[in-house]
Amino acid sequence: MSFRSAVITFPGSNCDRDMAVALEQISGTAPARVWHGDAELPESLDFIALPGGFSYGDYLRSGAMAARSPITKAVVAAAGRGVPVLGICNGFQVLTESGLLPGALMRNASQNFVCRDVPLRVENNQSLFTSGYDSGETIHIPVAHHDGNFFADEDTLDRLEGEGRVAFRYLDSVNGSQRDIAGILNDAGNVLGMMPHPERAIEDAHGGSDGRALFETAIKGLVAA
């Protein structure tokens, strides 16, 4: 059975090709490439990826415009039906702006764009996306963002922690995120948003391949299902 995935491209997305290459390389099947103005997703998708970049030039707020584009409505509906959705960097910003994930991603506390490999701790390895890691394992994944400073009110943060929905946490100071949160899951566990870029760490030539397990386990779990 082949793996049916889609990568959504907005005007200003710039990690869509990297994401498509990662999905094709690891699943053996090229993802459908879907444009922001499309009203519908391909049928019976196993996986949807919202890539990094600067959709709509980050106008108003990062991810704000993309979150309201026609295709995002279709992504929200698909997520509601249980289709796994992975949002990386700008994709994470789109997920919070669309309401699929709680909180908001604000300007980095340092005001600086941060672009480097960062150590992350895997906090929850029970999800579709993270079961290829050990709980508490340290992995190294690149970040490249200006607006990665995760904010949510204390009640929301406590709920995320209590429900095991913090997937990844920064091990050093990266962007001022509350409780060093780098990636979170929705309550059903089928939507993951994270600022670091696992698709940029899938082979040794990238300087590390710690991101590979995320795609491998997700794809394996979905094809087997």
Partner: peptide, 9 residues
């Protein structure tokens, strides 16, 4: 509420 402000922040 729907666009101009992000009510989370």
């Amino acid at each position: 509420r729907k666009l101009l402000a992000n009510m989370v922040i």
